[in-house]
Amino acid sequence: QSFAVLVNGFVCKDPKDVKAEDFFLAAKLDMPRDTKANKVGSNVTLINVMRIPGLNTLGISLARIDYAPLGENPPHTHPRATEILTVLEGTLYVGFVTSNPDNKFLSKVLNKGDVFVFPEGLVHFQFNPNPYKPAVAIAALSSQNPGAITIANAVFGSKPAISDDVLAKAFQVEKKTVDWLQAQFWADNQN
C-alpha cells in the first residue's frame, strides 16, 4: 500500500518517479500579458509550486508583472516570502511600509534594470507612472508558495463582508463610505 507524503501541503514524489516535466513549464514569460482585464491595469503571472511541482521544498518562485500605462500592482503582502523585483521595461514607482509601531513608508522610482526588495509580510505596491508606455518587471520570491493578500480586496471584498461598523471605526470614515467600498468589484490581477 502506497501513501502520499506531503511536504508544505504538496505531494512529494518518490525520487524514482520524478521526470523532467515536474521541473518544467512552457510559461512563455517573454510574451506581454493582458492588462485591460481588470481595473488596476496590471497582470501578475505567478510561477509557483502549483504550476511546477518540482519547486516543492525549494523555497523559490517567480512572477512576471505587466503594467498598463498608469497601471498598478495594488498594495498587497506576501505572508511567506521576501520579494526582489527587477524592472525589465519602463519605469515603476514602488514602496513598502514597515510594521507597527513605526509604519515608515520607503519608496523609490525604478528604471529599466533597477532592483528593489520587499521584505516578507510587509505591505507593498508597484505603480507605472507613465501615462503612455507600459512597464514590465520580474519578481523572484523566497518561497515556492508565497501567497498574496491584496489589502483592498481582503478588507472591503471579504465574503462574508466585515461589518461596516467595524470598518467605519477602523478607517475613521462614515458607514456609507464603507458600504460604497464594499459594493465595488474588487479586481484580481493574479494569474
Rank of each mutant, 00 (worst) to 15 (best):
N8L: 07
V115M: 13
N130Q: 09
N100A: 15
T150V: 13
P119W: 06
L167T: 00
V117K: 13
I47L: 04
Q144E: 14
A27T: 03
N130F: 05
K108F: 04
V44E: 12
A152F: 08
V123G: 01
L122A: 01
L70W: 05
P79R: 04
V166S: 01
F171T: 02
H78E: 05
M31H: 14
S2G: 10
V87F: 06
F105S: 04
Q126M: 14
S99R: 12
P79D: 05
D17C: 10
S42E: 01
E89Q: 14
Q184W: 08
A81N: 06
A183K: 15
P74W: 02
G54P: 06
G113R: 06
I138E: 06
E21Y: 06
A183Q: 15
D114N: 11
N103F: 15
P32T: 03
A170P: 03
Q1S: 11
T150G: 05
N191Q: 13
Q144M: 07
N43C: 14
K36R: 14
P119N: 09
T150E: 09
H76W: 01
K159W: 08
K39L: 10
N103M: 12
D102S: 14
F3C: 11
S158N: 10
G95V: 01
F156P: 00
F105Q: 09
V136G: 07
G9D: 07
K175Y: 06
T177L: 11
M31G: 10
L110Y: 07
A140T: 15
S158V: 03
I149N: 09
N111Q: 12
H78T: 04
N130L: 05
G41S: 02
A135W: 01
L167N: 00
A20L: 13
A20Q: 14
Q126K: 09
R33K: 13
P101M: 05
S143A: 13
K16N: 11
V44W: 03
D188T: 13
L85C: 13
K36M: 12
R33F: 10
I84S: 11
L106V: 13
I47W: 02
E174W: 08
N73P: 00
A63S: 15
F171L: 05
Q1W: 09
W186R: 01
E174H: 14
N38F: 08
A4C: 10
